[in-house]
Nucleic acid binder design. Structure first.
Lengths: 217, 217
DNA sequence: TAGATTGTTAATCGATTAACAATC
DNA sequence: TAGATTGTTAATCGATTAACAATC
């Protein structure tokens, strides 16, 4: 539901980065990978990595670390990334097009099977191999396919209307790339992706560094 | 510097959403806007909004709220968004192209003045009105223009090399859209933008909702 | 064996929330 | 005036970090 607070959200947010590190070490020799090593690669504290990994249910071996394959399976299983999940994308603009071509989604078990737009010039075409369909048929298509995830990349003004259609069609999760605070039923999860918050942090970090530089440089 | 911990990071992350709400209420009548109203629109606690706004230095008036224009100026000033800041973008792929056309950056005082790529077919063209230049000339161009911010949207394999060139050229902040943990000098700020962490949270939220649904629905 | 690493329990730290006097 | 709202001070909550016994 939209307003449930997910506990351990910071830990969950870090899990994909751990998964990424383990995958990179997959080919390299050794059956095990230690939390210490993962921590070092990500500039984190080892204890934090161990605590985070614990929520996936994995258990390691003292002195050795975590069995790589089991660790990958544990993280993927916890996140639901082990079985491929279909998604639709709404709004084939610049960002939508970019996300449709984003190869990394494969590693998250996320498959965009269709996109929707209202522009007649786009409808009927394919973008990165994904068919672009008429947004007017969205409700029918989603019901038929049973897709549960929608990626929302429409202009702000259309965001709430699109969300209404999506929820009515039975979508359970909306990955919201607009800057609109969506109003949805409680049983629908919304994850708002907000570029501006990251940029805010970057600018403040830069200011902080300049102050330090003046003082010490 | 890369590993400095910014205190009050969660508050800073929320500031752009407050700014967005105030801007939307700008035209509507009234000189003031209350923290209570902002909180309601964003599903936050009023006390949290007041605490967050306090770090910008703004002071409100009991019973009335915050003066809209002063509040906008305070947030923008705190974030450094009041004066336009130039940036370059490195890597004109799908995501790079999308960001080059992202209109919302105007509201953050961010101006992408040039992009760099190594593809001869792209070099010399313009994307969304922004010139695409040869990445081999990047060092020179950045030094000459004095740009301090770089948006990094190259493939993972090229990320560290690009970051090296950027820092050598005097870049002070890198907005990193790759999944590579960059190694940079301490005086360079890096903000890593990570789509997968948001997706992880979405999936866990959906799972939680399903469990609740089974129990109550 | 010795030393590195895990997992648990406790301590610390910081963020969120509560309470409430001041006030327009 | 009465009531809504601010800003401060205190309390709570949750996340991070520390300490350390167990162990391969």
């Amino acid at each position: 539901m939209a307003h449930i607070k997910i506990s351990a959200a910071p830990s969950i947010r870090r899990l994909p980065s751990y998964l990424h590190v383990v995958r990179q070490h997959r080919m390299m020799g050794g059956e095990f990978i230690s939390g210490t090593l993962i921590a070092r690669e990500l500039n984190l504290e080892p204890i934090q990595v161990r605590k985070d990994l614990a929520i996936t249910g994995i258990t390691g071996k003292p002195k050795k670390g975590y069995p790589k394959e089991a660790l990958i399976a544990a993280i993927e299983g916890f996140l639901g990334w082990n079985s491929p999940e279909d998604a639709v994308l709404v709004g084939v603009g610049n960002l939508g097009t970019a996300l449709m071509g984003y190869q990394a989604f494969r590693y998250h078990g996320l498959r965009i099977i269709a996109a929707f737009d209202k522009n007649p010039h786009k409808i009927g075409s394919t973008v990165h191999g994904i068919p672009v369909l008429d947004v007017l048929t969205m409700d029918t298509q989603i019901r038929r396919s049973g897709v549960k995830i929608a990626i929302l990349t429409v202009p702000s003004v259309s965001a709430q209307e699109a969300a209404n259609t999506l929820t009515a069609a039975g979508i359970e999760g909306i990955w919201n790339f607009t800057n609109v605070k969506l109003k949805v039923p409680d049983q629908v999860a919304v994850q708002k992706e907000d570029l501006s918050s990251g940029y805010a942090l970057l600018r403040v970090s830069m200011q902080t560094n300049r102050l330090i530089g003046e003082k010490w440089g």
